[in-house]
Structure formats: structure tokens, C-alpha cells
Write a protein that binds this DNA or RNA. Structure first.
Lengths: 342, 342
DNA sequence: CTGAAAGCGCTTACAG
DNA sequence: CTGAAAGCGCTTACAG
């Protein structure tokens, strides 16, 4: 590691005529230092072009000033979907404000998250961790909880939610509202759902909200109208075509992500199934696709950047004040568009 | 920093009946260690649940095993555009393979990149740096070069390119080909261009390629048909409307990014300017928008993930073998779509 | 308010 | 092939 001249605390101390301890105290703004000495030392630091060695500092102080960010492994999630970059941006901004660096998980292989976390923590590389997605029975959550290591979660934990700092939208309500919107705008026959990976807690919440809304609309829930897929186009084409072929055909479908919804819409249109006349489509994430598609798609904006920002705030509280079990619910926004017009 | 038990090298040494030095050598796979001792030590490490402290290791060895990734500051660039997340993904995968962690720049404010870099380097936090975008007269490049600190650049440097490791597409050729494609499909009147920030080297290259193609097509270059904007929708609407109003109206426009192109296309269509009949549109980045827009847009895929991956490879060579001035040109792919049909 | 000393957990010439 | 010792550049009780 080049340190460009490698001016150390000793050099500064010598030049300022004080001890290294004093210089260290000046760096950490210890209030006991007299303004005069502080000023003197600061001047020498500037003159010598001194930068504290963060690594040495970490070792001595047991604090790294760094946050580990664990992204989901499957690259599709990250690439196709603006959610993760947006959330990451929110995290980065908040981290910068709070004075933390971000260490990214680079686990190329699926299911290596726990390994990465162990490496981060046991290697003393991070003071806290942000988990960017939330699975059912997540071994990472379990591990971090058992260690009482500071972390926060984007999404909702499957259990022990009163012990885990997390930030989420009210996905139950969001799905409920979306489904109700469909039934209120005249879709009362069959409302299908294309959901995501059932291991994700967000999937479960949305399914619950969907069911509840059906119930209140007196539309019976039917298993054969609930499809589980991934956050990709293929899922949209596949289930879109199945839905289009059903007899009687559903008059609405709620989809868990815009990319999927968009693919379904394209498929419907290719079959000359009209949107919203023949079938209404409502979705999540309010990506650029949903806004600007040929047929603009009704979508729920989950505000990923806000989720990221809040997760960082929670983490700071967890690290600095030992807070556990904080829960923040972030508002979502329903954007009604042509795809569900009544 | 919790280290969960905090088993150190000493504990392992004691248990194995060897010196800490030996344990250290086992960790770093020093070939001089006999297989027997190595095995014995390894067993003890496992038994004690020992994980090396990466921070301590960094301090002693002067190597951090982490790479600093400097993203551009303006959040728009990162959010609206799949380029950066995709490139980051490529970097992450390659980093993982090479055994490096990734430290992300979290500079919230514009123009803080140099500060972040200094902090990373002088704090000994990183062994190398990847610059994700390339400006003219970039003070970061200058600083890193003057320090001879290992780094690699995504994009092309403005000068000293034989001293700087970088990976780029042939943006000159890409713009040339795109423009030629327009003229070959019958657009011979006026071909406008909406380019990006003129401080970016990529902008300059693409303008050159555009000019060259015009020249070869015997279409005079006109300053008033070259517009400089940002990578956002506003730019597309703004210049799209100006272009639509020109008399005579250009019969084609080449745009530096899909988001911008898409906005322009929308604007044209709102004015009943037909695409591709009245005006052809060609663009860069091959995002989901360009593929699935109402009117699919011809676009150049720059293969951001590949750029990221290659930049990491270059950096590894720079760090481990002292390589400077390597240059990798990554292939692009031109996807011809309806927006430029002849 | 400041300094001397010990220590954070490793690595690495230097001996042997 | 292995060990003892010094050192990486800080921080932090402990004295005074």
C-alpha cells in the first residue's frame, strides 16, 4: 500500500513538539486538548500533508468506520431492476453523511452471503451490515442476531421482527390497495397475480394483501390464479401467456415487478388482448418502463432510495447506541395509469 | 468491532504448539512449511473457529486486499442509467474471483472524488482504484498518475493514454457506424446529434465519429445540429422539441443515451412526427427502454458488464505486476431496430 | 491538559 | 523449515 510519503503521527508530533498521544487526541477532537496545542498540531498536519492511517486506527480502536453492504447474489435481480442501484444510492448518501465507507459484497456465487458476512465481521472490516433483501429463514439474519452484531435489513424479517432493525414498505397494504383499485375500477371477475420468489418475505406480504382485497371484494381466491416466478421478462411472458389462455380469462392481473408486468403486457398485446379493456395490469416499482411503456402501467413506487437511506440511519443507531428492533415503515405511492383505467 | 470470541493467531499457535510466525505462514500458504505442521495448524484453526483479522494483516503487510471504486457523483447518472450498476456488477464479479473486496465511494457531493481518493489511499484502505468515468482534465487521473498508484479507468483518458490502464469501447467507430447506418438507410438531408457532457471523453469520441461519418456521406457538419446535454429525459424533450421545429427538419438524430433518445421519441410522437418515416433515431446503451419502447430504438450495446470486468483485470495486473498503460478495447454491438428502418 | 507505555493482531526480515 | 523480535501506525487507560 503506497501512502505517498508516509507521514505518520510521530512526524507530526516531532514537528509540533508534542507527544503522539496528543496528536492522536487532536485528530479525534478530544475536547481536553487546549485550543492552542490543537491549533499548533493542526498546522503541522497540514504542513506535512498528514493523513491518518485508517487501517492502523481501526486496529487500535476496534472501529473500522465501514459498513458492509450485502447485495443479493443473482445478478438478474440487480441488473434488470432499478431497485438495488437506487437503494444503494440511498445507502451511499446516508453513509457519506454519517461518515462511513461502504464495503460491497462481491460474492459471485449464489448462497455465499453468509461466508462474506463472516469474512467481513471476523476480519474486523466492518462495524455494521446492511442486508439488502430479506428471505424467509435467512441464515444471515440468524447469524447476525446470534452475534448481536449491528445490522439492518431492507424488507421485513420472517420472524423475531421485534429484535431486528428493519425498514420496509407496507407491502401488505400496497398489494391490498392495488388489488382493490382493480376491483373498484370494475374488475370483478377474476384477478390473477404474478408474484415473485416465495422465499422472499415481500412476496408473502403482497400475496396476503392481494387475498385480503379479494375477500373484501367478494372475489374468491383461487390457487390456480396465483403464479410464482422471478423478477424477469421470462416470467412475464410465461405466465402472461397462460393467463391469456385461461377460459374465462381473468380481467385483471397484479404483478410483483414492472419488468415482469411489461413483458406480460407485450405478450397480451401480441395476442390482441386489449389493455385495459380486456385485462387490466397493475404492478410494483414504478420503473421507467411502467411510466413510458406504450400502455403506461399502474405501479406502486416503493421509493427504494428512501428505503436505503433509512436502513443506513437505523444501522447508525444500532452501532452507536445499541438500538435493536427498530422498525421503519416507508411510504409508497400508487401511480394510476392507463393499464387500469375503468 | 466485535470479533466474536476474538481468537487470535496466538491462540492457534499455543494450541498447535508452534510459534505465531508459523501460523502466519500457514495462513499465507508459505510453501516452506512442512505439510505436517501445516495440517496440524489448520486443524487447530478450524477447531478454534479462527478467522484472520484482515485489518491487522493490512497494517503489517501494507496490503488491504480491497479496491476503491469511484462512481460519478451526480446521482442521476447512476439512477437513470443501467450503465453504472451493470459495470459495477462486472467489477464485483471479477473482484470476487481475484480475491478483492470493493470499497465504494460515498461522496454525496459533486466534485469530491479527489477527496475520497486521497482518503482511500492515504488511509491505506485500498490497494488500487477503479475510476468509473472519464473526464477531460480529470484531476483524479492526474493525482493517481503522479503518485504512480495502481488504477484503471473505464473510458479513455484525455491525455497520457499510453501511461494509463484503461478499458473502453471504440466510441469513435460506434458513433461512426451508427451515423453511417442512418445515411445508408436514406437519411441524407440533415443528421442531428444530441451528445452528452462535453467534459466527458466519450462525448468527444462520439462527436468525432459522427463528424467523420457525415463527411464520408457528403453531408456537411453543422454546429447548429449538435446539441450538448445531460443523460436525462429533460435533455431529450428539450432538444427533441428544438429539432422537431427546425426547418427543414433533420431526417435523423443520433443520441448519446437511450433515456434521452426515448424522451425525444416520445416528444416527436406527441407532435405527430413519425418515426422512422419523418425522423430516424439511433442511440447508445441498448437499455430495456430502447428494446421495448413502443417504437423500438436502434441502439449500441456498449456491454458495461464487460467493461467493468476488464477494468478489474487491468487493475489486478497493475497492482500485482506493476503494469501501466495497458489498453483494452471491448466490442460493442449495434442493434438495428424500427426507429431507423429505411 | 499532556506524556510514556502498552497494546491492537498480524507480517517479515533475520537467524539458526 | 521454524522461532524470536521488531514493527506496521495508531489509540487509550493510567499517571501525573
Amino acid at each position: 500500500m503506497k501512502t505517498s510519503g508516509a507521514v505518520t503521527i510521530k512526524d507530526v508530533a516531532k514537528m509540533a513538539g508534542v507527544s503522539p498521544s496528543t496528536v492522536s487526541r487532536v485528530i479525534s477532537r478530544n475536547p481536553k486538548i487546549t485550543p492552542e496545542t490543537s491549533e499548533k498540531v493542526l498546522k503541522c498536519m497540514k504542513e506535512l500533508g498528514y493523513y491518518p492511517n485508517a487501517i492502523a486506527r481501526s486496529l487500535a480502536s476496534k472501529k473500522s468506520g465501514t459498513i458492509g453492504v450485502i447485495m443479493p447474489t443473482t445478478s438478474e435481480d440487480v441488473l434488470l431492476n432499478p431497485f438495488f442501484p437506487e437503494a444503494l444510492r440511498g445507502i451511499a448518501k446516508a453513509a457519506s453523511k454519517a461518515g462511513y465507507d461502504l464495503l460491497l459484497s462481491t460474492n459471485a456465487e449464489k448462497g455465499e452471503e453468509l461466508k462474506v458476512i463472516k469474512n467481513f465481521i471476523r476480519g474486523s472490516k466492518v462495524d455494521g451490515i446492511i442486508l439488502m433483501s430479506s428471505k424467509v429463514n435467512d441464515e444471515c439474519i440468524e447469524f447476525l442476531t446470534s452475534l448481536d452484531f449491528p445490522f439492518s435489513l431492507i424488507g421485513s424479517p420472517h420472524c423475531f421482527s421485534d429484535k431486528i432493525n428493519h425498514v420496509d414498505n407496507d407491502n401488505y397494504m400496497a398489494a391490498y390497495e392495488l388489488t382493490r383499485h382493480l376491483s373498484m375500477t370494475g374488475r370483478r371477475k377474476k384477478i390473477a397475480m404474478i408474484a415473485g420468489d416465495e422465499k422472499l418475505t415481500v412476496t408473502q406480504k403482497r400475496i396476503e394483501g392481494y387475498k385480503k382485497a379479494l375477500e373484501e371484494s367478494n372475489i374468491p381466491f383461487k390457487h390456480e390464479l396465483l403464479f410464482m416466478g422471478s423478477f424477469d421478462e421470462k416470467t412475464g411472458y410465461k405466465y402472461g401467456s397462460i393467463i391469456a389462455d385461461l377460459d374465462p380469462r381473468p380481467d385483471a392481473v397484479i404483478v410483483t415487478d414492472d419488468v415482469v408486468a411489461f413483458a406480460a403486457v407485450r405478450l397480451f398485446e401480441s395476442l390482441d388482448v386489449k389493455i385495459p379493456e380486456d385485462i387490466a395490469v397493475a404492478s410494483f416499482n414504478n420503473s421507467i418502463l411502467s411510466r413510458y411503456s406504450n400502455t403506461p402501467i399502474t405501479s406502486v413506487d416503493v421509493n427504494a432510495a428512501k428505503l436505503g437511506k433509512e436502513s443506513m440511519k437505523l444501522l447508525v443507531e444500532a452501532m452507536e447506541s445499541g438500538v435493536r428492533g427498530s422498525k421503519v415503515i416507508t411510504p409508497y405511492t400508487l401511480h394510476k395509469r392507463k393499464s387500469t383505467e375503468g
